[in-house]
Computed example of a mutant assay.
Amino acid sequence: MTPLTRTVAATAALVCAAAGTAAGAAPAPAAAAPAASSTLPDRVMAGYLHTSFANGSGWVDLADVPDQWDIIHLAFAEPTTPTSGRLEFSLCPRQECPGVPDKAEFITQIRDAQARGKKVVLSVGGARGQVSLETAAARDAFVESASAIIDEYGLDGLDVDFEGHSLYLDDGDTDFRSPTTPVIVNLIDALRALSDRYGPDFVLTMAPETFFVQLGYTHYGSGPWGGADPRAGAYLPVIHALRDRLTLLHVQHYNSGPIVGLDDRYHTMGSADFHVAMADMVLQGFPVAGDKTAVFPPLAPEQVAIGLPASPLAGNGHTAAPEVQAAWDCLTTGARCPDYAPRGTYPGLRGLMSWSINWDRYNGDEFATEHGAHIGS
């Protein structure tokens, strides 16, 4: 989620190497939003709270998080090693974060936030937290350790923010509907196990980069001839397998190279055009790697939010408030649309996500204030 999460040039180079884009196909009907979605407002603002590190923006107490934020992602739980699956979570060291509370006080703040109607969720991964569940033992350790943290802090769910090399597709794993790569299959099984354990009120969110989702329209894995980046589109089988449990998908519309939209044109981050085109892809569905027989079905609008940096300091691709609001209006009402014309209108679009609450506080809470009022959070 940080500005260092992706070498943008590398992403752009892969995208620009596209061998050709197939025309869109009629999407399958969207699955109904999961039960956990009904415990949230119709409009949602989700924000990441730097909990285990400062990241230059300063510590923010949960008690001081502005009321506009409905989902608070605690960033981050990280594995003991990239392949162990065993997660650890601790508060920022006091020398790095003056004013950090002790664990007991932090748990009290969580309870107070929940009493105000907020969902407080454990976010796993981030730029530094590589999580590759290569074995059944790692899968089981992931479930066990995630459950232990959720129970210890009394949290509402889990956010999957796998970046870097956490997810990839083995050669020959070409169908997102029946994946075979261990890191994909084990993650799906682990998230199902956690969802089953906590029941329908469990909040499950995902924050992939465009490289792992929308890029799947033109590239999926290493490609039919091999040699392409095996991470391309690698979140698609995870999202698809868990669409009946997924509360919210908020793709990061930042730290991204140019991405081909459903109009078969490249779209560049930082504009209303980019946000409309990228959101439209998950709301309409698309043929994966141009294969009309393998269409990734659309998500319900209630399961979709747009991920944005809170300020220019928070990540590449910051978008000025008027552009964000034009994109929102275009997607939800059909008005104020940019060059890209969405294939539908989505009045149920759920909301916005931001990296991060801390950077927004550092910037005077502009994101929470401006966008919370505009979308009606």
Rank of each mutant, 00 (worst) to 15 (best):
P3W: 04
V8M: 04
T11W: 12
T11L: 14
A13N: 10
G20Q: 06
A22E: 09
A28W: 02
A33Q: 00
S37W: 02
L40T: 06
R43M: 03
R43L: 05
A46F: 01
Y48S: 11
Y48L: 04
S52C: 12
N55L: 08
G56R: 01
S57C: 09
S57W: 08
P66K: 13
Q68D: 13
H73D: 07
A75F: 14
F76G: 07
E78V: 15
L87H: 03
F89C: 00
F89V: 08
F89E: 09
P93D: 08
P93W: 10
E96G: 08
E96F: 13
P101Q: 13
K103Y: 04
K103H: 09
E105T: 12
F106A: 04
I110K: 05
Q114C: 00
K119M: 06
V120E: 00
V121D: 12
S123Q: 06
A127F: 02
R128C: 06
G129F: 14
Q130Y: 11
S132L: 14
R139Y: 04
E144G: 02
S147H: 13
S147F: 11
A148S: 15
E152C: 05
G154M: 12
L155G: 11
L155R: 06
L158Y: 03
G164M: 00
L167G: 02
Y168I: 05
L169Q: 11
D170S: 01
R177L: 08
P179L: 03
T180A: 12
P182Q: 09
D189A: 15
G199E: 02
P200R: 03
T205D: 01
M206Q: 07
T210W: 08
F212R: 03
V213P: 08
G216A: 10
Y220I: 09
P224Q: 14
G233K: 06
Y235I: 08
P237V: 02
H240G: 07
A241K: 03
L246A: 12
Q252E: 11
G257R: 05
I259F: 05
V260M: 03
L262S: 13
D264F: 06
D264S: 12
H267K: 08
S271V: 09
S271G: 13
H275R: 12
H275M: 13
A279F: 10
A289C: 10
G290H: 06
T293P: 09
P297D: 06
P297M: 09
L299D: 05
A300D: 15
E302Y: 05
V304I: 05
I306R: 01
G307E: 11
A310F: 11
S311V: 00
G315I: 00
H318C: 09
V324K: 07
Q325A: 14
Q325F: 10
D329K: 14
C330P: 11
T332F: 15
P338E: 12
P342F: 02
G344Q: 02
T345R: 00
R350I: 05
G351K: 08
R361A: 13
N363T: 03
H371P: 10
H374V: 10
G376Y: 07
